[in-house]
Design a protein around this nucleic acid. Structure first.
Lengths: 215, 215
DNA sequence: AATAGAAACGGACCGTGGTCCGTTTCGCCC
DNA sequence: GGGCGAAACGGACCACGGTCCGTTTCTATT
């Protein structure tokens, strides 16, 4: 997989990079390493993928691995981006109600249901990509801007950026993993609870005194 | 609070431990290590505290450190419990509106404001105590049960356990750190946003069709 | 006080993520 | 093609968290 005929989902937001393209050997090694990493994840799970192992398995020096992906988190982030890009495409241009075409409120609810499933599916990878604490800002940035955009379309009043954060927070990996894997709640129940949260936020009467705008 | 004369904040929920007490040398070392750790945190910050350094600084072997606190997270957890117990006492028995006496709605709002400050204050320690991912369940358990209790007193309808989680999620370390330290929002704004979220959740009209109860 | 057995101790040892720097390869330009 | 500077490569090296196990110390019992 990778370069040629393009059926694979391509990375996220194009995000024009001005840097000159990689040298041929570098690109070859990047592809080789990503493929090897994918195979290792499949075989041993995310935790079983060591940078040393990856290097030796790919027949390459450790330094090379760290040169291509600046850290383990970076590597996992790229693996994740690959997995997530299909989902992002579905949100951006797939069929309604997840994709465009449905009323924004329904899109938001569909987003939540879908996101909960996707997050649980990729939980290990997301966690390993060092998500909280800095990296993989790509993924969370996409989610945040989508939700915020829908809130705007719905016409919600208030501090949209922070309200967005509050709606997204219960979709984070640790929260969902705690609810589903540790406390044993069903995915459907968690999804319903999020939908209920959204309903409350959208249908609440306007604030008595408006919140401070933004310092 | 807790046992007898004591002016130091004592650990959280008593949680009867049946195990026999530590041997004298063990107790001595635990105290020595905690004190040394506290000093090191103060001097070098949480990240500057290494298990090796702690051991050598305290003049004991590394094995001893790991025997007393089973991991780095465990150590940080104990340090954190010490810091948090004062706050927990204020919630459980301090003056209103944070403590008992005020109407539950006001207590909830006061809780949020206070919790945001405390979390930001102890952010490094909370993160180092391995909070998401398992440990330090003590702290989050306390928070969850308090919020849930208040929601019950207020008379909120719905799936209270999960609604509680949704309200608590935006108070987690990574979220708050992102908002305040990275995006540069003021603490007051974050506090207001949480209060607005609570207002919406509490004042929303009842659900059209009730959510599924619980499988 | 002597003793026995459990508990605590210490530090060598391991695997991991990450860095460093001397060596090799690439690809552009003459 | 030959040469040259930049980029990539490789693997020794480091610090850290964590384990293991032989040795020492405590304390309960007699």
């Amino acid at each position: 997989m990778s370069t040629p005929g393009q059926d694979v989902p391509r990375p996220l937001l194009p995000l024009a990079d001005d840097r000159p393209p990689e040298r041929a050997d570098a690109a070859r090694n990047r592809a080789l390493l990503l493929e090897t990493a994918r195979r290792l994840v499949e075989r041993d799970g995310v935790c079983g993928v060591t940078m040393d192992r990856l290097a030796s398995e790919a027949g390459v020096g450790k330094g090379t691995v760290f040169r291509r992906f600046s850290s383990r988190e970076g590597l996992m982030g790229e693996l994740l981006d690959f997995s997530e890009s299909g989902w992002q495409a579905a949100v951006l241009s797939g069929p309604p109600p997840l994709g465009p075409g449905a009323p924004p409120r329904e899109r938001l609810l569909a987003f939540g249901r879908s996101r909960i499933e996707t997050t649980l599916l990729h939980a290990d990878l997301i966690a390993a990509s060092g998500y909280p604490g800095g990296r993989s800002v790509a993924a969370i940035g996409f989610i945040a801007s989508h939700v915020r955009h829908l809130l705007g379309e719905i016409g919600v009043e208030g501090d949209l950026p922070l309200l967005t954060t509050a709606l997204i927070a219960p979709l984070e990996v640790p929260v969902l993993v705690q609810q589903v894997r540790r406390e044993g709640h069903s995915v459907a129940r968690v999804q319903d609870a999020w939908a209920d949260l959204v309903r409350r936020v959208l249908d609440a009467p306007p604030a008595a005194a408006g919140p401070r705008p933004a310092p």
